[in-house]
C-alpha cells in the first residue's frame, strides 16, 4: 500500500515526476533515433559513393564514436559543445544562452546513433540487389525517386534488425543523460528514490518501464520487418 502511494500520480506520490521523466526519455530517444537515421543515411551514402576525403572523415567519425565509451562521449559532447557554442556567442558579442536539455540530449545521442546507423545502413545499402537498381535506371527513373521507391524499400527489410537494436540502445542511452542532470526517467527515479529512501520501489518501477518500452518496440519492429520483407517467401503469410 505504502509502495503504491509512493508511485501515485498526485503528491506526495512521485508518479507524475516519473512520467514526466519517461516523456522526456521518449522524446529524446525518438529525436536521437531520427537524427541517427538522417546522419546514418548520409553517412552510408557518403561511405559508398563519397570521395576519398568524405570516406576518411566518415571512417574517423564511426571509429571514434564506436571506440569511446558513450558516457564519456556524452560528457564531452554535452559540456564541450555547450561551452563551445557559448564561447562563440561571447566572442561574437552575444549573451550566453541556456541550451535546452532536450535539444542537447537529442543532439548528443543523435551523433552517437548516427555512427552506428551509418554502419547498419551501409551494410543494407550494399546488400540491395544491383539488378533491381539497374532495372530502375533502365526504365528512366530519376535518381531521387529511385532512392525513395526502389532502394530504400529494398534496404528496409535488411536494415530492420540492426535498426531495432539501435532504437533499444537509444532508449537505454537516455539514462546516461542523468549524469548531466537532465530530468529523464533515470534522473527522476534517482530523485524520487533519494528523497523517499524507497530505492528498491523506484528503481524496480523504472526497470519495469524500460522493460515495457523494450517489449512494445520489439513487437512493433517485428511487425515492420515482417511488412518490409513481405516479398520474401520465408516471411510471407
Amino acid at each position: 500500500m505504502e509502495t503504491l502511494s509512493l508511485l501515485s500520480l498526485s503528491p506526495p506520490g512521485w508518479g507524475a515526476t516519473l512520467l514526466a521523466g519517461l516523456w522526456n526519455s521518449i522524446l529524446i530517444a525518438v529525436g536521437a533515433f531520427g537524427m541517427g537515421l538522417v546522419l546514418g543515411t548520409l553517412g552510408a551514402w557518403g561511405k559508398i559513393h563519397g570521395g576519398p576525403v568524405t570516406r576518411d572523415l566518415l571512417a574517423l567519425y564511426t571509429t571514434v564514436v564506436r571506440a569511446v565509451p558513450e558516457l564519456i562521449l556524452i560528457l564531452i559532447l554535452y559540456f564541450g559543445v555547450t561551452d563551445l557554442v557559448n564561447q562563440l556567442l561571447l566572442a561574437l558579442g552575444h549573451d550566453r544562452i541556456q541550451i535546452s536539455g532536450i535539444a542537447a540530449g537529442i543532439t548528443v545521442l543523435g551523433v552517437v546513433q548516427g555512427a552506428y546507423a551509418t554502419e547498419v545502413l551501409r551494410g543494407a545499402l550494399l546488400s540491395v540487389p544491383q539488378g533491381q537498381v539497374e532495372a530502375a535506371r533502365a526504365m528512366g527513373m530519376p535518381p531521387f525517386l529511385m532512392a525513395r521507391r526502389i532502394i530504400f524499400p529494398a534496404m528496409l527489410g535488411l536494415a530492420m534488425p540492426g535498426l531495432a537494436n539501435l532504437w533499444l540502445i537509444a532508449t537505454k542511452d537516455t539514462a546516461l543523460l542523468a549524469v548531466v542532470g537532465f530530468a529523464e526517467l533515470t534522473f527522476a527515479t534517482r530523485q524520487a528514490a533519494g528523497t523517499t529512501k524507497a530505492f528498491f520501489t523506484f528503481f524496480l518501477a523504472a526497470g519495469a518501464i524500460y522493460l515495457i518500452i523494450t517489449l512494445l518496440s520489439t513487437w512493433a519492429f517485428h511487425r515492420i520487418e515482417g511488412w518490409a520483407r513481405r516479398g520474401e517467401p520465408r516471411n510471407a503469410g
Binding site: 533491381q132 539497374e134 532495372a135
Partner: peptide
Amino acid sequence: FQQFNLWTH
C-alpha cells in the same frame, strides 16, 4: 535482363 530484376518488395 537475364536475371529478370523484378523489384522483390
